[in-house]
Design a binder for these strands. Structure first.
Lengths: 203, 203
DNA sequence: GTCTATACCTTGATAGAC
DNA sequence: GTCTATCAAGGTATAGAC
């Protein structure tokens, strides 16, 4: 599961991961067989076991990889710094979340819908990463509340509500749809900001 | 699948539906076997086929039933009337959605997560019902915009965002958790209202 | 209407040749 | 590292007794 680059078989492993991600997203983990994955990659079913010990191992690798990438990508954003102005950080978070998820629709589907397909130890690994991501947003909101810039009696609840709203885009967004991605992003940035705006506060 | 009341076997059918709903919600449609469902009901696996022709038929019956109930329940609300004040209708919709979904967490899980497990004709049946529900909210928002009470450049997008936000509660809400249901409901009602509130508008 | 028994198929995973 | 062949288990659905 570790991504040892350079070796010959790693390219095959990457193609297996890619095929599995697409198939799991479309049909669900339990509904996809190792044979289907192998067939899409163009290898025999047995070959998968040279790269992953079990089907469960393949799944958890995808999910941990996705969540780890997500966290690392956000933490690399300038606005993720703890001293950023809350309003600017919140907007940056919304734009980041939308863009990252638009680029990885399949990974998002898998990571948010297959939690129940994980056995208990693996579930806790992924859950911890998901919590860490939610905590990033909760932190921004809490700082905004402390600074008097936001209204949010329960920052944790506001964070969960915002993430659900943003992630919901992946459920209906289609490239080439009626609205361009930039318009959708602007609409959501505005709605997110409104969610924590003090009623009589700044516009 | 039609709910012919009174006959003796209908009680068994209802218990099969209940067991299937719980199991599908917890483990996913594809991961649950007819044997497991039958075992939970306390009958043999073959007995299920006296009430449902296939596993797919059992699933689609649950989903169509849930969505139909949801639509009928909302349409029976006084505030669903087309001449209700938009702000009041929006609050009523939020409260209705939260309460209905809290009472039927398993059905919601199944109806929102197993769309991909439906074959094409069944998918379209359920999708049409889901669209109809979204349209109810979109209508409220559009009327609010027309009346100058709401700010929403794209009522359809606002409706999808609000529904995603509200439905997200089912992903983390647990009875007996830190916050009472009434508090959570109040927080979300406020966030929903904020989502479409004109920036310089009424508080 | 439910039971037991079973047909038939696909599953995840393994073994050994190359 | 990949292939083919294979195993044991479990899948949906059916048949016929009661």
């Amino acid at each position: 599961m570790a991504r040892q680059a350079g070796s010959k078989g790693e390219e095959t492993a990457a193609r297996i991961r890619a095929a599995a991600t697409g198939l799991f997203a479309r049909h669900g983990y339990a509904a996809v067989s190792m044979r289907e994955i192998a067939s899409e990659v163009g290898v025999g079913a047995g070959a998968i076991y040279n790269h992953f010990t079990t089907k469960q191992d393949l799944l958890v690798g995808l999910m941990v990889g996705h969540m780890t990438d997500l966290l690392a990508a956000w933490d690399a954003e300038p606005m993720a710094a703890a001293d950023a102005f809350p309003a600017a950080a919140l907007e940056a978070f919304a734009r980041f979340h939308i863009r990252f998820h638009r680029q990885r629709i399949d990974e998002v589907f898998v990571s948010y819908m297959e939690l129940r397909s994980l056995d208990q130890p693996n579930f806790h690994r992924v859950e911890r990463l998901r919590r860490a991501y939610e905590d990033r947003l909760e932190g921004i909101i809490a700082r905004g509340v402390a600074a008097g810039a936001f209204h949010a009696p329960e920052p944790k609840v506001a964070a969960l509500a915002i993430i659900a709203m943003l992630t919901g885009i992946t459920g209906w967004y289609r490239q080439g749809g009626r609205l361009p991605a930039s318009t959708i992003e602007a609409l959501y940035v505005e709605m997110v900001a409104a969610t924590v705006r003090p009623k009589g506060g700044p516009d």
